[in-house]
Design a protein around this nucleic acid. Structure first.
Lengths: 333, 333
DNA sequence: CTGTTAGCGCTTTCAA
DNA sequence: TTGAAAGCGCTAACAG
């Protein structure tokens, strides 16, 4: 393998000079620079990344802490992170936590032993004190979800605003019996979407019976969404609209309605959140809020890179979402 | 940061000895070993991975070449690779090719510049000469798909056998008008599934009209599957069963049948392949062949690790699949 | 069984 | 504008 000193001899300069042109440093005389480039070309030299990483003591690896890459929502974000990462010269260490704090911590240890230069958290809960412990020693950014009490860099959409928009739409359609299917977890997206729900109901002077607030499992599973919907739709005073905080939950609701013979959107309006692929697979296509997942990931990686480079730029990025009205919603009859 | 020589002084031994116990090398006297361990503990020493990688000239990164991690099928495989990789101390460089050979090649370059120690190919086409160029210089293993003409390590299921089993089942149900929806790509899974289809038809003495063989897009998209199904189901001599080489295609077929008012399974039997999540979301649940995706990934990583370590073990792993009969198939009426 | 020592290839002072 | 040289922390050949 040809190394920097081979290039140096070939170009009749010192290794220092070669290193300089490699990092377009300082002022290397144009002429010398060209001689070096020629030598590099001629010898087909590729700098040894391992040596460089060692010398600079950086791993060029980033840590991605995610509940589950198998979930298309996270997969899309990951895709954005991954593309941006590799174009910046980084690899990814993906830590699937399955929601366990234990695992999340284990992942963060990778920072300590220098396996990774920084981390992107795809699922920090609203209250994650253990996080902070790492965050002030290592570069950490939060993507999609975040703990508001920290001022760590983060990218997300404005979940409150998005949810508010959906609810305003529902109300404008004439709905007053608006139920919701939420989930028992501590993600800020959940919290804010629910806050928006409660605020919208209050603003419209709608009293929400307790039974209208249903909960699915923490992982937003289709099955648990369906189960929650079954309860909701069997209520004596059945809601005419169900505001779901995720698409899978909305899909579960559609499935439940189908089984109960309730027509969508004539008799029931259903809305989702996130816009994963399945929302336009079967009719009715789901009315939902499209998150810019890929971009979320891309930006998160950019933020992390800045952080690693110590460029402290704008810290809290809010990307725009898109409210997509499709077939699962309609005016109250 | 405390280093190996700090530990050495603390334990009153040489750095070489510390290095030896770190790598449980040779025979270090038990007593000395313990002294070293004590020092490590006391100083809270963590070996510098960057230095180690550099010295051993290994990156501890593996390259994953995949068409698209956003596809749940690949995401599941990736999940298996990822977990195994991180437990072996590897990170992943994920290269999304979107099917482009160009990109695939660009990815493989990472091996040349030592960004990665080896590669796992999730989608080698049956005929990929450019692959070989890298494969005999670097560790490469093929996962799920492979080029038969190489003897590179690989993990997969027996696609021919699996497809044969599905078709045997279809014939046993009484179906004679069996159409297929395939895809224009050069994956061995496609080739073998189609071979099995043709062989089964021939063996059963069934003449297949040309119009019974439909093609969807190379990416098995739902939409293109639906389109192909529409054609098939509008045929004068409409098939009573459709053998799809992927689940999304089967889902597309179900959707087409739904729109045409064709009842499944009473009037039409549909089978899929792979068993991604959506197969049991809406009724009819899809009859399909379940691939052990996670395990496929796990094993691929193990094989790659062996290859990197130069342990040439068993090279061609065939994992078992599972034929799952659900609601989309039934006897011919 | 253990210690000495020479690098691995690069970056970065410091001097010129 | 360039060169000499010191190391980064570890491994491994060699010597004892």
């Amino acid at each position: 393998m040809v190394n920097i000193s081979d290039v140096a001899s070939e170009a009749h300069v010192s290794v220092a000079t070669v290193s300089r042109v490699l990092n377009d440093k300082d002022t290397v005389k144009k002429e010398t620079r060209e001689r070096v480039y020629a030598a590099i070309e001629k010898l087909n030299f590729e700098p040894n990344i391992l040596a460089r990483n060692f010398r600079r003591s950086e791993s060029r690896v980033i840590l991605i802490i995610t509940p589950n890459i198998t979930n298309p929502y996270y997969a899309h974000i990951l895709s954005g992170i991954g593309d941006e990462a590799s174009s910046l010269g980084y690899s990814a260490l993906i830590f699937n936590t399955g929601g366990s704090l234990e695992k999340e911590k284990e992942g963060m240890e990778m920072l300590k032993i220098r396996r990774a230069d920084g981390a992107i958290l795809l699922a920090s809960a609203v209250d994650s004190p253990h996080l902070l412990e790492y965050a002030d020693r290592y570069p950490v950014v939060q993507c999609a979800e975040y703990d508001e009490s920290t001022d760590l860099p983060r990218v997300s959409i404005d979940n409150y605003k998005a949810a508010a928009e959906v609810l305003e739409y529902l109300v404008s359609l004439g709905h007053r019996k608006i139920a919701t299917i939420s989930s028992r977890n501590s993600y800020i997206s959940t919290v804010q979407r629910m806050d928006a729900y409660k605020a919208a109901m209050a603003d419209s002077g709608i009293a929400v019976p307790k039974s209208y607030i249903a909960y699915a499992d923490g992982d937003y599973s289709f099955k648990s969404g369906k189960k929650a919907a079954m309860k909701l739709l069997s209520l004596k005073d059945r809601p005419t609209a169900v505001f779901c905080i995720s698409d899978t939950l909305a899909l579960g609701t559609v499935s439940a309605a189908l089984e109960l013979g309730i027509k969508i959107p004539e008799e029931l309006t259903v809305t989702g959140f996130d816009d994963v692929d399945d929302t336009t697979m079967f009719h009715p296509y789901i009315t939902t809020v499209k998150q810019p997942c890929y971009k979320l990931g891309e930006k998160a990686m950019k933020l992390l890179y800045d952080r690693i480079q110590k460029k402290e730029e704008k810290n809290h990025l809010i990307l725009s979402y898109q409210f997509v009205i499709r077939e699962s919603s309609g005016p109250l009859k």
